[in-house]
């Protein structure tokens, strides 16, 4: 059986996840259960949603450093409006989502129309969003609105005695929607084309400007949605929420097999990239004696392996062509 070369990174990612999960199951009692698997989704729901948005940005050949700050800003705005102003959540949540989308659109427009590097623009966006959090308040705002606590505590029972949270369901829906968008819509194909070669897509008559701006809009929207989910998870708004989160997100996308130069990769890979990060954390918490910084070192190591793997694969592809 010959495997299409373009599927190798994603297959490696999935295999790695299975191997790590199996290894954990043999090593620790109580690891091999459906609930541990479900907990991966519950604890990483916001990472999953952000990573989905980030996948599109990276597929289009850009990068978005503002995601962590936008999450923090979303939690802060939600907490501020619900808790201090007494607005109903039904108004606040759409407003927060809209805010994230507009934030992304503005960054995208600046990247495209003024031809400034995405790295710098989203860096400024990161500073701005993080700073705006502190303008609202420098302290944690705890949320005790009944809607938010209900969202945090509701358990959706699954067969086999396990359960999922509402956040995890939202995350799964986001992944499904993203897979559909990436592979079965015109927008998705435009994103891949744009990531492959911007000049060619322009000459082909694809709507480069619209696609590029939309990609950042989507990422902003996903970050805001992740922020809403994060509020369900933490039940508070705080300016220091999700610091350094953009790196976790980028790492998840890369471990998922997406090429950072753009144009190559799958949303499904990102899904498993997030799960792998979750498994590492679960293993470290099961181990008990390992400290949290080993997570960073292992993720760094995995990043290295995956980048090297991609490098080898893509260089081999080039030699075949020649």
């Amino acid at each position: 059986m010959s495997l299409n070369r373009k599927y190798i990174p994603i297959v490696v990612t999935i295999l790695l996840f299975i191997v790590m999960f199996t290894a954990g199951s043999f090593r620790y009692t109580g690891f091999f259960s459906l609930q541990v698997l479900m907990n991966l989704l519950i604890d990483n729901a916001f990472l999953l949603i952000t990573a989905v948005g980030m996948s599109f940005v990276i597929l289009s050949g850009g990068i978005d450093l503002s995601v962590g700050s936008v999450i923090a800003l979303s939690t802060m705005v939600s907490a501020g409006l619900v808790q201090q102003q007494g607005w109903p959540p039904a108004v606040v949540i759409p407003l927060v989502l809209l805010m994230g989308a507009v934030f992304g659109t503005l960054m995208g427009a600046m990247i495209h129309y003024f031809a400034i590097q995405p790295f710098i623009v989203t860096l400024a966006g990161m500073f701005l969003a993080r700073g705006l959090c502190y303008v609202i308040s420098i302290d944690t705002i705890t949320i005790d609105h009944s809607f938010y606590t209900a969202m945090a505590q509701t358990r959706i029972p699954l067969p086999g005695g396990s359960f999922l949270s509402i956040s995890a369901v939202i995350a799964l829906l986001a992944v499904a929607a993203a897979i559909f968008t990436a592979h079965y819509t015109r927008f998705g194909r435009n994103v891949y084309a744009l990531g492959g070669n911007e000049q060619s897509s322009l000459l082909m008559g694809l709507p480069v400007a619209r696609t590029k701006v939309l990609v950042y809009t989507l990422s902003g929207f996903c970050s805001a949605l992740a922020g809403v989910v994060f509020t369900f998870y933490m039940l508070s708004g705080y300016g220091l929420h999700a610091v350094g989160f953009e790196l976790d997100t980028i790492a998840a996308v890369v471990i998922g097999g997406t090429l950072l130069t753009g144009g190559v990769g799958y949303v499904l890979g990102t899904f498993f990239g997030v799960l792998i990060q979750g498994v590492i954390q679960t293993i470290i918490s099961f181990e008990g004696t390992l400290s949290s910084w080993w997570t960073k070192i292992v993720i760094g190591l995995l990043l290295f392996i995956f980048i090297l793997l991609q490098r080898v694969l893509s260089s081999r592809r080039l030699t075949v062509k020649e």
């Binding site: 990068i63 790196l247 790492a251 950072l260 130069t261 910084w293 997570t295 960073k296 760094g300 980048i307």
Partner: peptide
């Protein structure tokens, strides 16, 4: 490897090494 990615590895792992 692209510089931004290559140095991202050490950025993530380096923080862990410093804490170690």
């Amino acid at each position: 490897i692209q510089p931004i990615i290559a140095t991202l590895i050490l950025m993530v792992a380096g923080r862990g090494i410093a804490q170690l």
